[in-house]
Simulated scan of single mutants.
Amino acid sequence: MARARLKTKKLLTPELELALICSGPEVSADAKGRLAGIANGKIDWTLFLKLVMRHQLFPMIYWRYKERYLPVFPVSVVAELQKADRMNKIRTMQMTMEMTELVRGLAERGISAIVVKGIPLAQMLYQNITHRTSNDIDILVRQDELEAAKQVLEERGYEAEKEQYCLIHDALPEWIEQTQSVACFDARRKIMVDLTICLGSHGAVIPWEEIEGCIEEIIFAGQMIRVVKKEVLFLHLILHGAGHAWFRLKWLLDIAYILEKGEISWRELYRLSDKIGVSHIVNQSLLLVHEICGITLPEKIERKASNSKVAYKLAQQAMELMKISDFNPVKLGPMPPSKTYFLYKKYRFCMLHSWKQRIQYGYYEVVNLIMGIGRELSIKISG
């Protein structure tokens, strides 16, 4: 027996529904009819703009508006979309140039870097690098190349963020080694690069032998770039979005666009997700993309996802977090204590599929909480 549908009514306000239809994979005749009905109704355009900016949906919406695929928006809304789109174009071009320079510099040191998500993903899904925002450059390297890659970035003016693990390193060396990444920031260019040695998230790492089978070389701005594709990319996007509770719906739309292309092998996807114990997270993302983005799934896959109790619970938890207007897990700290903080940590705990992972994660978060409280107290004392 299929499970009841997700309760999307409180999340899908007319403003958010309008934004999702405007930026979704296909503006069909049926969708245009719904668009006209929504746009002609009582729309809070201030809220619409806020949602479009928060979920970073404005590049596709503005492009479609210019191409006259969308209904007429108020002049003030169009002006704000145009302004954000112009800034995104400039930023994207800067990051594209920097990405190619970084890959070239790493290759000269014999480092076979792989660019993940970001600008190549925008080209792959939207056929235009400016139709999707990119906040940083994600580069995947092997563990034995991490220090050399970090040095290349430092020579270009990047500064690595300080290590904050200490006690965690001693207690959970395997956990840290599997998920290690180094965030490097160039203050002059205002560009963040995330050097990582794995794809996935805490407790769910895609094996390198699987990654190697999905690597493709493409020419980008005159430079050969290595990227991951197919089921490995799809699964990584799911794990990344789910790990952040899909607080930016552009990540869920990425999933929708990939599904609309119809190039994913369901058998291969579930083989890989079963291998690393994350099929429940895959099912969660499919439930959300079906209910929120309106993507039609194969009947067998929809039934499989709907019948997963864990996936259904995770989908509901993610939607509770999505409804919080200022929710951003990247900026969410333990001080001062908040309901949102504990809701998110509970959600992350439920994502883990084994008790070993849950115990490790619990210890990890307890240490982080103690360290966070300690930092706050030291600041207050010194102040």
Rank of each mutant, 00 (worst) to 15 (best):
E302A: 15
R248N: 03
R248M: 14
L288V: 08
K250G: 11
S285A: 15
L252N: 00
V282G: 05
L297M: 06
L287M: 05
I295F: 02
P298I: 04
L288H: 11
N307D: 13
L288N: 13
I301V: 15
E299H: 08
V289I: 11
S285E: 09
I295P: 06
Y257Q: 04
I301Q: 11
F247C: 15
I281W: 00
E268T: 13
N307F: 09
A305G: 11
K261T: 02
E291S: 14
L287A: 09
S273G: 04
K309S: 14
R248L: 01
S306L: 12
S279M: 06
I258P: 01
I258E: 03
S306Y: 04
C293A: 15
I258L: 08
L288A: 14
V289R: 03
R248S: 13
S265K: 11
R267L: 11
E263V: 07
C293Y: 00
S265C: 10
I264H: 12
I301A: 01
R271P: 10
L297T: 04
A311L: 00
W251D: 15
I295D: 08
L287E: 04
L272F: 01
I264T: 15
I292F: 10
G262D: 12
V289E: 05
I255L: 14
S308P: 01
L249V: 01
W251E: 15
L288P: 15
A256E: 01
L297A: 06
S279K: 11
W266G: 15
L297C: 08
I292Q: 08
I258R: 02
Q284K: 08
Y270K: 15
E299L: 06
N307G: 14
I264P: 06
K261E: 01
R248D: 05
G262P: 09
I301C: 00
K309T: 14
R267E: 14
D254G: 08
I292S: 10
S308C: 07
C293S: 09
K275H: 09
E263G: 07
I301G: 07
R303T: 13
W266C: 14
S273E: 06
E268R: 15
E291Y: 12
W251P: 11
S308W: 04
S273L: 02
K261I: 03
A305L: 02
S279Y: 05
Y257K: 02
Q284R: 08
A256H: 01
S279P: 06
S265H: 11
V278S: 10
W266H: 14
V282W: 07
S306P: 00
S285C: 13
E302C: 09
D274K: 03
P298L: 04
S306R: 10
W251G: 12
D254S: 00
Q284C: 08
L249Q: 01
K275W: 06
L253Y: 03
S306E: 08
R303H: 09
N307Y: 07
E291W: 08
N283G: 02
E263C: 07
D274L: 05
L297V: 07
S306W: 05
L249N: 05
R267S: 14
G277M: 07
W251V: 08
S279C: 05
